[in-house]
Amino acid sequence: MADTQDQKQFRLLRTPRSAAVAGIVFAALFSTSLVLIHTALPADPFDETPWVGSGETRIKTALVLAPFAGIAFLWFIGVIRDRLGDLEDRFFATVFLGSGLLFLAMGFVSMGTAGGVLAIARHSGSSADEIVYFGREIMLQINHVYALRMAAVFMISLGTIWLRTGLMPRWLVVTTYLIALALLVVVSFSIWTTLAFPAWVAVISVYILVTGRRVRAEAARSVAQ
């Protein structure tokens, strides 16, 4: 009898409805931090030190936003896994989760590098120009080459899961594949290439929100009848 009473105290843990907004939050914060970083960098890396003056405030703001973008991205991964439920395959789930976490880790490393270089430039002046240039190139390589490749793998694995399970419409799966292939092939330091991934995350999140409300409305109507 006591065991039965103890069991009644537990509740089934469910994903909050608002969790689907996490992808939109990630897209907004991540895109903002990228724009701030890129506008603080000169087109020519051998111009005057890009981490001081007006660019310093923008980089500091980007460094503040980046951790919150990462937290929102973790919530987005959780929403995707919750939507898959029992349909999740171990192989594709491993690739999907691993690539997502690697993308996030590389983003944090890139921002950490930016913060370190900013501190060196602020306290050392022109004597540390070579270190500043070196850190700048590391940050761009991590962001635009390695992190974007992991983002592409994340998209391809997720697109394959959606294709096999039918959880997402065919047009969204095809769009996912096309963007992912572009991120795999194109090697560019252009900000527009990098912004393709958060834009895709925002579209997926909006679709999940809209379809989730539709499903709940239909369930409520069926219960009322």
Rank of each mutant, 00 (worst) to 15 (best):
I142W: 02
R164F: 15
T193M: 14
L140M: 06
F197A: 11
L12C: 03
L163E: 08
D86G: 00
V153G: 02
T211Q: 12
F46A: 13
V185H: 05
D89I: 06
L195T: 13
V25C: 05
G70H: 07
L167H: 09
T113H: 01
M106H: 01
L65S: 10
D82P: 02
I142S: 00
L12G: 05
A224D: 13
V25A: 14
D86Q: 12
V35S: 11
R14F: 11
T94A: 13
G85E: 11
G116C: 00
L65V: 14
M150H: 04
T165F: 09
A27Q: 03
V79W: 02
R170K: 07
S110C: 06
G135M: 04
I77F: 06
A220L: 15
K8D: 09
G100W: 03
W162N: 03
F103E: 04
I204N: 04
R213M: 11
A43I: 01
R214E: 15
L65I: 14
L13G: 00
S190G: 11
R17W: 11
T165Q: 07
T57I: 15
F30A: 14
E88L: 08
A27C: 12
L104G: 05
M150Q: 03
V203H: 02
G116F: 03
S205A: 15
A93R: 07
A62S: 13
I142F: 07
E48W: 08
L195P: 07
V215M: 07
S222A: 15
R214T: 14
G70F: 08
S54L: 06
T39D: 09
G23L: 07
T39F: 14
F96E: 06
T4H: 12
A69W: 07
F108T: 01
A105K: 04
L74S: 10
L195M: 10
V95G: 01
A22I: 11
A147W: 04
V153Y: 09
R90K: 12
E56T: 07
E130G: 01
G23V: 06
M168P: 00
A20E: 13
Q141D: 06
V79A: 10
